[in-house]
């Protein structure tokens, strides 16, 4: 009999077992729920051959394994988030020795969990990514002695300076855009801009933010984004969501 553990995806309130039934967890076993006080943990059984300490050290070095596991983990969290906004997602590969160990942990964390759930209840996380539209450089004026080395160097220096200034301008504009959007949300978190090879876009990412927005202020948030699209024509603003509140249902204590 192989040793097993209990993989924890999220903890929340008002989670109905029925809606999660039939859902497959990481490693293939069925997703199920554990109750403790008024909180419900979303879990599944995993084999320690794949999810034990040494197995994880091995598997986490494998990008394919990580991708499959991360997507499945996120899918389970999303399904739970579709049922309730009072949900605290846990980080990938948070595994306990048994169901009882999960309940014990919830008991220990109870007060902080309740605070985290209250913070995100009736709210959703929305990702906002801002891309700088490529701007064409004005053609360099052709001087009489354009062929001379000095003129060429001066022109090159001016081009580089122009690009650097444009980059700085874009960054401070992006910061302005961020502050313009903040009042429409309950909370915000700035993330590192993503690399162009990942975004598969020619334009550079000038801003990568995630916002916690009241569900009943959602319309206002989207209208604000549309307004910013008009006010900041040099940017392309991409909104994605709703995400489960990964970035905001965090514990106050480490």
């Amino acid at each position: 009999m192989t040793e097993t553990g209990t993989y924890l995806y999220a903890v929340g309130r008002h989670l109905d077992d029925e809606v999660l039934s039939g859902l497959e967890g990481v490693g293939g076993a069925a997703v199920r729920t554990l109750g403790h006080r008024d909180l419900i943990a979303v879990v599944s059984t995993v084999e320690l051959d794949d999810f034990g300490e040494s197995a994880l050290r091995r598997n986490l070095e494998n990008l394919d394994w990580v991708e499959i596991t991360a997507r499945r983990h996120d899918e389970v969290v999303r399904r739970a988030a579709a049922i309730t906004t009072a949900l605290a997602p846990f980080r990938l590969v948070t595994i306990y020795r048994s169901d009882d160990a999960v309940r014990d942990r919830i008991e220990t964390l109870y007060d902080d969990l309740v605070l985290a759930l209250d913070r995100v209840d009736r709210r959703s996380e929305w990702s906002v990514k801002v891309f700088s539209r490529a701007r064409s450089m004005p053609p360099a004026p052709v001087a009489a002695d354009a062929a001379s080395g000095v003129a060429y160097l001066e022109r090159r220096r001016a081009e580089i300076r122009g690009r650097q200034e444009a980059a700085v301008d874009q960054q401070s504009l992006a910061d302005q855009l961020f502050w313009d959007l903040v009042p429409a949300a309950a909370a915000s978190r700035r993330l590192a801009p993503q690399d162009q090879r990942l975004t598969a876009r020619r334009e550079a990412m000038a801003l990568n933010v995630t916002f916690l927005v009241d569900d009943d202020r959602c319309t206002e948030f989207f209208e604000r984004v549309d307004e910013l699209r008009r006010n900041y024509p040099s940017f392309d603003i991409e909104v994605n969501g709703p995400w489960p509140p990964y970035s905001f249902a965090v514990l106050d204590k480490p």
Binding site: F51, A70, T94, Q194
Partner: peptide, 18 residues
């Protein structure tokens, strides 16, 4: 997805230490 499931969410030690 990785940005969120690796770096965000409740980061608390499980029994399986990694």
């Amino acid at each position: 997805i990785l940005e969120r499931v690796l770096d965000k969410g409740i980061i608390i030690a499980g029994d399986i230490r990694v």
